[in-house]
Simulated scan of single mutants.
Amino acid sequence: MSVTDRTIVLAGATSDSGLALARALVEAGARVVATGRSADRLESLRAVGAEVEVADATSLASMTDLAARLGAVDAVIPLVGGWRGGGGLAGQSDADFAALLPALDAVRATSRAFDSALRASEAGRFVIVSSTAVGRPLAGGANYAAVKAASEAWTRAVAQGFAKAARDAAEPLRAASVVFRAKALDPASLVPRVLALWDADATDLNDQIITLD
């Protein structure tokens, strides 16, 4: 298997990482559908060969509509993120927590909207980018680590759902849900890991937590 000819959705892809990932996937022969809420910010993704959709990755309704229009999809990677923190535990404000929650909302919305499409693919992949902060949370980043931990828990639940659906249907497992952890996200470490998602069988890949270099 390879990434060539796969349809891959990058949800909330207007970051530097989203652009680097879209470029690499297109160059590898994939069909990339990149979403964002700003048509202007999506233009750089269109320029590297991605199809672009003005859509809200944190909205189940928006992602469900997109899933219905796209049909067959082989991978979904929500890229909504950001960091706010500092000030110790006392500095973990409700405003900062609320600003971080869209990352979890995107994981929930995209996984639910594309669940059936990923299970129907011969090699479906659902991937999130988390943080090593989950393994060693600090007081000054408690809000951030909590949201990332919740996102990981949800993604692992997606993995269990993929496995259960395959068992119930008496079919081989074809879909995998994966967590990438990074201390500081570097597109140079993310891109090759995404390109390699189809080098491993879903049975070996599902429910894995992989630390990026």
Rank of each mutant, 00 (worst) to 15 (best):
V3K: 04
T4D: 11
D5W: 00
L10I: 07
A11L: 03
A13H: 06
T14L: 10
S15P: 05
G18Q: 02
A20M: 08
L21Y: 01
A22I: 06
G29P: 08
G29F: 10
A30L: 05
V33D: 04
G36T: 14
R37N: 07
S38K: 08
R41D: 10
L42T: 02
L42I: 02
E43Y: 01
L45P: 08
R46V: 03
G49N: 04
V52W: 07
V54Y: 14
S59I: 07
A61F: 14
A68W: 00
L70H: 09
V73P: 11
W83G: 00
Q92F: 12
S93Q: 03
A95R: 04
A98E: 15
P102Q: 06
D105S: 11
R108K: 08
A109M: 02
S116P: 02
L118A: 14
A123D: 14
A123P: 09
S130C: 09
T132P: 07
G141Y: 03
A142P: 08
A149R: 15
G161M: 12
F162S: 14
K164Q: 12
K164E: 14
A165W: 12
A170I: 11
E171M: 11
S177K: 07
F180M: 10
F180N: 08
K183F: 10
A184G: 02
L185K: 09
P187N: 09
R193F: 05
L195C: 10
W198R: 14
T203W: 14
I210N: 07
T211W: 01
D213P: 14
